[in-house]
């Protein structure tokens, strides 16, 4: 599904990723861990197409397409979803309108018929129920006045509605209390399927207690320095990242 081959990338003027390679197959869940400043969020931003994050070398193939050649909205319509570490607030635009606009923009790109408001309402109400979230989320302006936990839940809810093929969760667990962590994790687990993959960027092993990864990678100084199973996350929790400097 996703093949990142020897990618170098800079954020602004600073080179962050330095020869990163990663392959994600359909249905797989990959956790990316690593110390602050290692390049974890830059990886997520690069895949989603954030301006000022630019690949200088290497390639990213997503379902046979050169991902780096696509605009951010095209990447989204192809099936890439980034759950933001710091979701932005958009006053005056309610979630319902925002999500329907996004969904129909993606459908249009894929040559599908737009979803009318009645169909959309039925669909989101079912989703919000399935994901055990409160439906007042739909009427509120996007992320305005949301607590940190609510913003992260909203990201997962958006993911549920847009049904991406590859979801990148950038520190979605940060700032969540135990209950919120469970709601978010349950939401992600519900979306797991044989044709949907996840890249979960996190600092802590605790999220991986709820979302079982297939692979855990350690990202340091812009490249993956170690890969393993969930056991690696437990080792990191015990030992920290000090060994990377040895």
């Amino acid at each position: 599904m996703l093949k990142i081959n020897d990618v170098y990338a800079k954020a602004g003027d600073k080179e962050i990723l330095k020869g990163l390679s990663l392959e994600v197959k359909p249905g797989e869940v990959h956790a990316i861990m690593g110390p602050n400043g290692a390049g974890k969020s830059t990886l997520g931003n690069l895949l989603a197409g954030m301006p000022h994050v630019e690949a200088t070398q290497g390639s990213v193939d997503f379902l046979g397409k050169d991902l780096l050649d696509l605009e951010p909205e095209e990447r989204a319509a192809e099936g890439v979803f980034l759950a933001f570490q710091y979701p932005v607030e958009i006053p005056g635009v309610n979630n319902m309108y925002f999500l329907r606009t996004a969904l129909n923009a993606q459908r249009k790109y894929r040559g599908e018929e737009p979803m009318d408001s009645a169909q959309f309402l039925r669909m989101v109400k079912q989703k919000i129920k399935d994901m055990n979230m409160r439906d007042d989320l739909l009427k509120r302006p996007v992320n305005v006045g949301f607590s940190g936990g609510e913003k992260k839940r909203n990201e997962v809810f958006q993911m549920g509605v847009l049904e991406p093929k590859l979801a990148i969760l950038d520190e979605t667990d940060s700032g969540l209390d135990i209950d919120a962590l469970k709601i978010v994790s349950d939401g992600v687990n519900q979306l797991r399927s044989s044709d949907r993959s996840f890249i979960i960027i996190t600092h802590y092993q605790r999220l991986l207690d709820h979302i079982e990864p297939d692979y855990v990678h350690v990202l340091a100084d812009g490249k993956i320095v170690k890969s393993g199973t969930k056991k690696l996350a437990l080792e990191l929790e015990e030992q920290g990242y000090g060994w990377l400097n040895q």
Binding site: A48, G49, M50, P51, H52, E71, P72, E73, R75, A76, A77, F81, L82, F84, P87, V88, I90, P91, G92, V93, F98, L99, T101, A102, L103, A105, Q106, Y109, P141, Q158, L162
Partner: peptide, 30 residues
């Protein structure tokens, strides 16, 4: 217009032109 907000909208599949319109609408609402 806030670039981060525009990118947020684009990352959900909304074109840059439509994202700008939404951001302006949001700005006016205040």
């Amino acid at each position: 217009l806030d670039e981060q907000s525009l990118f947020y909208l684009q990352s959900r599949g909304i074109s840059i032109e439509q994202a700008r319109e939404i951001m302006i609408e949001s700005f006016e609402q205040e």
